[in-house]
């Protein structure tokens, strides 16, 4: 259980400013997810919280105590690395027990905790194996198990699933969600650039861009109320359609954004006419790529069920009223 507060946190590597003043509050027991494009500083921010990097300026507190200069092991954190970072020469059991052994816990206590964690993650059969004798998914679960054994106040995850294949990723994602429910007293901070992971796991999401917080909110808030063009484009899949120029000015905006699920194939007033570039069916949904003759990327329209459109067929599409996001020149929402 820890309440984390970041006040104007900055981090530079030499002359390069990577984190440029982050203010953020993470409530105790919360599952916070950092998302953002590659290189925006997600890992760096997480490593600052872990104490693996020194904070250049600003204040970081855990439960009100300043931790800027506190060693990683004293912060009550556990970290799961993207690369697993298991000790290659130790068995799974030793890997998980190492931290407790150093803390001079009794043998029985260690055994009990390790076995409990192993059971939770279903890695009991592999306890005697070396990391190299495990698959990627099993290694990742060992890494998570090692974190659980530490019984931390804060879990830090840096893209823990990015080395796994799609099916395993979904399964492990569920396991992490389960873990969060079972250990609902621990705060979890999770870095990913997979926004499905972000949307499904997070209590709140923090969107980072170029070393600054772009927006913080629940997944639905971000989806429904993006506070900038960047967030609107970043959250949601497929990416939100953006249109400029004349079409946008009709809505009194510099840019409008419409999600593909908020566009209908309909020929009503204000509809956009164009032709089909391509269509793809995923079984439950179909996506139609439509060129409406204003340049830029084709507009993506989502239809439920299976639909096939011939390329070059004429089509007219229309946004659902009230579901059009309007942005001004600076990329901020237009209010009126």
């Amino acid at each position: 259980m820890a309440h984390i507060e970041l006040k104007n946190i900055k981090k530079s590597f030499g002359l390069v400013d990577v984190i440029k003043g982050v203010d953020l509050e993470i409530f105790s027991g919360e599952f916070m997810v950092f998302v953002g494009p590659s290189g925006c500083g997600k890992s760096t921010l997480l490593r600052l919280m872990a104490g693996l990097e020194d904070i250049t300026s600003g204040e970081m507190t855990f439960d009100g105590t300043l931790v800027n200069a506190l060693a990683p092991s004293k912060r009550g954190i556990a970290m799961v690395f993207q690369s697993y970072a298991l000790y290659p020469h130790m068995t799974v059991y030793e890997n998980m027990a190492f931290g407790m052994e150093l803390a001079k816990s009794s043998k029985e206590a260690i055994k009990e905790r390790v076995e409990k964690a192993a059971e939770l993650l279903q890695i009991t059969p592999y306890l005697a194996r070396l990391p190299k004798q495990l698959s990627g998914g099993q290694r990742q679960r060992v890494a998570i198990g090692r974190a659980i054994v530490r019984d931390p106040k804060v879990f830090l995850f840096d893209e823990p699933l990015s080395n796994l294949d799609a099916a395993l990723r979904v399964a492990t994602r569920l396991e992490i969600a389960k873990l969060h429910h079972q250990m609902n007293s621990s705060t979890m901070v999770y870095v990913t650039h997979d926004q499905v992971e972000a949307m499904t796991l997070a209590d709140r999401i923090c969107v980072l861009r170029d070393g600054l917080v772009e927006q913080v909110g629940t997944p639905l808030e971000l989806y429904e109320n993006p506070q900038s063009l960047f967030v609107a484009g970043f959250i949601g899949s497929p990416k939100m359609n953006f249109l400029n120029g004349e079409i946008a000015s009709k809505f009194g905006a510099n840019t409008i954004g419409v999600r593909s699920e908020h566009i209908e194939i309909a020929d009503r007033e204000g509809a956009w006419k164009g032709k089909v570039v391509h269509s793809e069916s995923l079984g439950s949904d179909s996506y139609v790529y439509v060129d409406i003759g204003v340049g830029g990327d084709p507009v993506i329209v989502r239809q439920e069920g299976t639909h096939l459109h011939q390329p070059d067929a004429a089509i007219s599409i229309a946004p659902i009223p009230g579901k059009v996001y309007r942005f001004d020149k600076a990329g901020k929402p237009v209010r009126n």
Partner: peptide, 27 residues
Amino acid sequence: VPKDVYEAAKIDGVHPVKVFFKVTLPL
């Protein structure tokens, strides 16, 4: 020796001397 192993040791709170004998040397 991968760098991340040392970071894991840092989080585990391993004393540097112990890191040498328990992690670096075996590797």
